[in-house]
Design a protein around this nucleic acid. Structure first.
Length: 166
DNA sequence: ATAGTACCTG
DNA sequence: CAGGTACTAT
């Protein structure tokens, strides 16, 4: 399936910054490829790359919904009570998935966006919008606009090593 | 027709 | 994650 020499390196850090990445319209597919300068892309490899990000996004949103519902069951009534810190359960779940080895320092911006996402889910569920089969679409549309730029350092084939030496 | 995505499954 | 289906958009 091709040499994903950079796969492990890029995965984690990428998603600390690119959570809601939507490929259509944004031309993001080509943008992503520029971060894998050592990979020769064909149809198959490209779709696998796209699939990864699809899976990553999926995981992110599944956690958000789960945590939002859990908060509601726990009696939370206001979004003011929902904040995402580096020691909260949700953050740990995400970090465990995207940044298992803690190679990357998760940007503050990620916490902000995650919190916005969580509150978005919370409000939608409270409002009973989840009866609509496509209720998440509205949330996706909001969050994908909050994507951060992917740090340039991830373009380096040796980004992991370089980060570890900082 | 093809690429990209959501949703579900293993 | 990868596979598969169904659906949207180009």
């Amino acid at each position: 399936m091709g040499s994903w020499s950079k796969r492990q390196q890029v995965r984690d850090g990428f998603h600390d910054c690119v959570v809601g990445l939507q490929t259509p319209g944004g031309g993001s597919s080509n943008m992503l490829k520029t971060y894998f300068s050592d990979v020769k892309f064909n149809r198959c490899i490209t779709s696998q790359l796209i699939k990864w990000f699809s899976n990553f996004r999926e995981f992110y949103y599944i956690q958000m919904e789960k945590y939002a519902r859990q908060a509601i069951n726990d009696g939370v009534t206001s979004t003011e009570e929902l904040s995402i810190t580096r020691d909260c359960e949700l953050y740990r779940a995400l970090n465990m998935h995207y940044n298992k080895a803690n190679d990357f320092e998760v940007p503050e911006r990620f916490l902000e966006v995650a919190q916005i996402t969580l509150r978005e889910f919370f409000n939608a569920i409270i409002a009973g919008k989840d009866v609509d089969p496509s209720w998440k679409k509205a949330i996706y549309k909001v969050i994908c606009k909050l994507d951060s730029e992917v740090p340039e350092i991830f373009k380096s084939p040796n980004c992991l090593q370089e980060l570890l030496h900082e």
